[in-house]
Write a protein that binds this DNA or RNA. Structure first.
Length: 433
RNA sequence: GGAGGGGUUCCCGAGUGGCCAAAGGGAUCAGACUGUAAAUCUGACGCGUAAGCUUCGGUGGUUCGAAUCCACCCCCCUCCA
C-alpha cells in the first residue's frame, strides 16, 4: 500500500484517534519512507490483545514502506506509567523486569519484518540509554524542559491528582519525562519522526514531541489509536479466565480463537477493520452478506481465523480449528483415538486422573482442581441444570458425590478418555488410568 | 510534625454491638430462547456435598456476642507547618 493511501485506509478503519500535526504529518509520510516507533512496557511476561492494535499498526506502516521500531521499556517498565491508572502501582524487581523485557522483545518481533531490504524493523530497549544516565544529567538536561504546571494539566494524571483517595508518587509522575526522552533519543539515533500508541499515551507522546523540538530542534509527530470498546460497554479483552494473552502458554490458540468467535455481532465488523488486514471493501462485502443471511454470520469466524493466524501462525490456527470442529460439531464419539491425542497436543485443557482418586471426594472437587470450574457451587449449579456432560452423557445432582460413577469404565473413549463439558462452551479432557 | 477524612467480599458501594456471609449496582458463570450472538427472563455468585469453616487494612482488647466499641500499628487522601 502506498503511503498516501495509508492514512486514508487507517482513517476509514477508524484506527486513528488523534494526530499531532495532521496536515504536516500526512505530507511527511507521503514524501518518503519514515521511521516510527511504539513502546511496550514489560508489565507482565506477555503482551495481551489490548496491545494488538498498536502492534498491528507498526505492521501496517511497514507494509506501506515505513520503518518500524518496537521499543521495549526495560527502563520505563521499572517506573510504571501512571496514565489513566487509578492507583499507584507496586514496583517489580530489576531481574523480573529484565526477564519480562526479553519475552516481550521476542513477542513483539513476530509482528514486524526484520528482513525487509529498505525498511527492516528494529527492536530497541530504552534501558540501553536510560541505564547510564545519572540523576543530575536527567534533571538538568531533560527535566529542565518540562513545566510542572503543564504536566499537572494533563488529563492522564488529573484523576490521580484530583480524586479523593488516590495520589501519585514522584516516581510515576516522572514517567512522562522518560517516555519523552525516549522519543528524542530515537529521533537522534534512528531519525525516528513518528510515535504511535494507545489513546492513553497522548500526553506522553505530545510530551515527547515538545522535548524533541527543544532538544533536537526537530519536528516529529504523534498518532494514537482508539481504545477498543465493545458495544455492550464491558471491557474488551477479558474473559472468565481473565486477560486474553498473546503468549500461547498463557492463552492457548484454541482459547484465543474462541475469544474472537464469541465477538458480538455489533462489534465484529469493527473488529475486522481493526484487527484484520483484509481490504475494507472485502469487509464491507462480508457485512452485507451476513446481513442477508439467515442464522449465524460469517464475520466471527473470519475474524477469529485472521487474528489467530496473525498471532499464532497457521499451525496455531489449524490446532484451534481442529478442537473447535471436534467440540462444537456435537459428536465427540466420532473422534478417533488419534484425534483425541491431537486435541490434547493442540491445547485443549486436559488433566490426568487415577481410578483411585475417583473413589473418594466429589465431582465438584475433581472439576475444580482441574480448573474446569471455578468453584464447587458452579458445578452444583450446573449439575442441577444438566449442564455437565461426560462423553455426551448428562450428569445429575446425585452424581456429585460419586465421581467414580461419573467416569464409568465402560464409557471411556479408547479405554481412558473422558471429554467433560461444563455449560455450552467449556471443555476439559480427562485421562483416567 | 499538626488537624481532619478514609481503608468492607472481583469492582463500585451500603452497613456503626446481635435479625450480617454482610443491602444495592456492575462484572462474571449457568439455564431458557438462539446462531458457540444481542436483548429478555430465571438461578448462582467467600469455601465446603453437607455439618460447618474462614472474611470486612493488621495485631491485641472489651463483650455472652464485633465489620460495627477501645488501644496500638500499617496504608491512602485533604488542609496546615
Amino acid at each position: 500500500m502506498e503511503s498516501s493511501a495509508l492514512i486514508e485506509d487507517l482513517t476509514a478503519r477508524e484506527l486513528i484517534f488523534q494526530l499531532a500535526g495532521e496536515d504536516a504529518l500526512i505530507e511527511h509520510l507521503a514524501s518518503g519512507s519514515r521511521t516510527l516507533y511504539c513502546g511496550f512496557d514489560p508489565t507482565a511476561d506477555s503482551l495481551h490483545i489490548g496491545h494488538l492494535v498498536p502492534l498491528l499498526m507498526l505492521r501496517r506502516f511497514q507494509q506501506a514502506g515505513h520503518k518500524p521500531i518496537a521499543l521495549v521499556g526495560g527502563a520505563t517498565g521499572m517506573i510504571g506509567d501512571p496514565s489513566f491508572k487509578a492507583q499507584e502501582r507496586s514496583l517489580n524487581t530489576t531481574d523480573v523486569i529484565a526477564d519480562w523485557a526479553q519475552k516481550i522483545r521476542d513477542q513483539v518481533s513476530q509482528f514486524i519484518d526484520f528482513d525487509a531490504s529498505t525498511n527492516a524493523a528494529e527492536v530497541v530497549n530504552n534501558l540501553d540509554w536510560m541505564a547510564g544516565m545519572d540523576a543530575l544529567s536527567f534533571l538538568r538536561d531533560v527535566g529542565k524542559h518540562f513545566s510542572v504546571n503543564a504536566m499537572i494539566q494533563k488529563e492522564s494524571v488529573k484523576q490521580r491528582l484530583e480524586r479523593e483517595g488516590t495520589g501519585i508518587s514522584f516516581t510515576e509522575f516522572s514517567y512522562m519525562l522518560m517516555q519523552s526522552y525516549d522519543f528524542s533519543e530515537l529521533n537522534r539515533r534512528h531519525g525516528c519522526t513518528l510515535q504511535i500508541g494507545g489513546s492513553d499515551q497522548w500526553g506522553n507522546i505530545t510530551g515527547g514531541i515538545d522535548l524533541t523540538r527543544r532538544m533536537n530542534g526537530a519536528q516529529v509527530f504523534g498518532l494514537t489509536v482508539p481504545l477498543v470498546t465493545k458495544s455492550d460497554g464491558t471491557k474488551f479483552g477479558k474473559t472468565e479466565s481473565g486477560t486474553v494473552w498473546l503468549d500461547a502458554q498463557r492463552t492457548s490458540p484454541y482459547a484465543f480463537y474462541q475469544f474472537w468467535m464469541n465477538t458480538a455481532d455489533a462489534d465484529v465488523y469493527k473488529f475486522l477493520r481493526y484487527f484484520s488486514f483484509r481490504p475494507l471493501a472485502e469487509i464491507a462485502d462480508i457485512e452485507a452478506a451476513d446481513a442477508s443471511r439467515e442464522g449465524r454470520p460469517e464475520g466471527q469466524r473470519l475474524l477469529a481465523e485472521d487474528v489467530t493466524s496473525l498471532v499464532h501462525g497457521d499451525t496455531g490456527l489449524l490446532a484451534a480449528q481442529r478442537i473447535t470442529e471436534a467440540l462444537f460439531s456435537g459428536d465427540s464419539a466420532a473422534l478417533s483415538e488419534n484425534d483425541v491425542l491431537q486435541l490434547r497436543l493442540d491445547g485443549l485443557p486436559s488433566s490426568q486422573l487415577s481410578r483411585a482418586q475417583l473413589q473418594e471426594g466429589s465431582l465438584s472437587q475433581v472439576l475444580t482442581d482441574s480448573g474446569l470450574a471455578g468453584s464447587g457451587k458452579q458445578v452444583k449449579d450446573a449439575l442441577g441444570r444438566e449442564a455437565v456432560t461426560v462423553n455426551g452423557r448428562a450428569l445429575c445432582w446425585e452424581d456429585n458425590m460419586n465421581p467414580a460413577a461419573c467416569f464409568g469404565a465402560d464409557e471411556a473413549l479408547y479405554g481412558r478418555f473422558y471429554l467433560v463439558k461444563l455449560g455450552k462452551k467449556k471443555y476439559h479432557l480427562y485421562e483416567v488410568s
